[in-house]
Design a protein around this nucleic acid. Sequence first.
DNA 1: CGCTCGTTTGACTGGTGTCAAGCGCAGTGG
DNA 2: CCACTGCGCTTGACACCAGTCAAACGAGCG
Lengths: 252, 252
Amino acid sequence: MNSRVVEQTKIRRRSPCFTCAVRDSSFCNALIRGDEQPSDEEPSESQAQLKQVHQTIRARQNIYRARDETEDVHVICNGWAFRFVQLAEGRRQILSFLLPGDFESSASIFKSHRPFSIQALTDVHYCKFNRVDMQTRITEQPHVLKELARFWGDEQDCADHAIASLGQQSAEARISGLIIMLMERLRARGMAHNSSFSFPLRQQHIADAVGLTPVHVSRVIGQFHMAGIVRIAQRQIEILDETGLRRIANAR
Amino acid sequence: MNSRVVEQTKIRRRSPCFTCAVRDSSFCNALIRGDEQPSDEEPSESQAQLKQVHQTIRARQNIYRARDETEDVHVICNGWAFRFVQLAEGRRQILSFLLPGDFESSASIFKSHRPFSIQALTDVHYCKFNRVDMQTRITEQPHVLKELARFWGDEQDCADHAIASLGQQSAEARISGLIIMLMERLRARGMAHNSSFSFPLRQQHIADAVGLTPVHVSRVIGQFHMAGIVRIAQRQIEILDETGLRRIANAR
DNA sequence: CGCTCGTTTGACTGGTGTCAAGCGCAGTGG
DNA sequence: CCACTGCGCTTGACACCAGTCAAACGAGCG
């Protein structure tokens, strides 16, 4: 396949996207590289319409605050972020984790304000696309819509999985399921090697994601440690017994 | 507004859609009526392409079984259905309830098989659209895509709400939240009058939707009865104290 | 009349939350 | 270099919400 070469020539060399580590698996790719079919219509024209701005933000800062109006849609280039809702009495629910190449959410492309917030978990490098430009790109180029639909289906599957997990599974199963999901998503990006990968989550984040208290998360992770299933240290995780971990995740 | 009249002329009088009670608020409307803008392009041509088949199914029958290949996308015309995943040991999680005018899920338009099943809760009258036809309709008519995006955003909001509810709320809050959500969705369709509406859910359905056991659902609903907040009987519900119900739904 | 299905109720159990204290470590400033 | 501090994690004691098991009831229906 030399499609990669073709893509590179279409992305301006000055753009940070030129060196993006996850470009091949991200939606940006379809967006930026223009129409896949070799055609004679000038691609540079619609190319110019797609404004994007790259930005950096420190850990714990909000990338988007719920219900704010914004013209932009955010894509994570580097680092981890998460989508969440803030509830009464300091409680919050993490709705999803955003990894490099992830959209804040594909539905955001069509809405100027959303009910959730987005916060950087590590230092994050992200990219803002103009929403209206994106919409025209999607209506004009059917293959971009197709690609978007794929992301959107994946998002729904993740959401449905979270609902089933929260509704039906025990604390151990929910936590191990979260670890497995993150592992698989990182593997798909080539960001996990020999069952060991970056794991910047605090136990508070895990708790907010799976609907438990940090205290109980600590107990469960402690069990996992003692059973020799995982090892978490220095913001890194190592999966020592993937089979065992999956068994726990699939049990009630 | 005489747009209603215009629409009627575009829907063949023989079609069940002609007398659909929720047509104005459903996605079918945008799909069937063709391009909104008065234009000279012949609408009858693309009209003919959109195959739809109407069907009826008894309560408790499955409309779709998880992971089956299908060429169709389903829309509920009449009655209630629900989307669910079946888990080990007879457990199941209800992911969402489908009311008249609802799509099985907007992401289904782009995928030939999905991880969830759909079951009729009451006797259901539904409509099958051909998926590929639908896709071309969406790519060809930008306003249909816009409309679809609206549904899709609503779906995400519902899913996010369910996640937050399951993760952070007490049994009382989850159950009252479910009742309120159904009430509001029925009101939007003109299917709820003076805080009283059809409520075909068994307590088992409520339990499977909010992640509790039927026994505990019974206890909570019993409390609601005794507190004079709602009255459920003969598959009908009456909201006696909406303020109180909302207070419970918003508390932890 | 005697099914079946859905609901209710009681007694008891257990998983998870709450509260509180202590530990280790990194950063910071003297 | 050392105290001080804050953050994240761990641990223990105890409380409580919700699950489990079992029995009984009522309504609809053949």
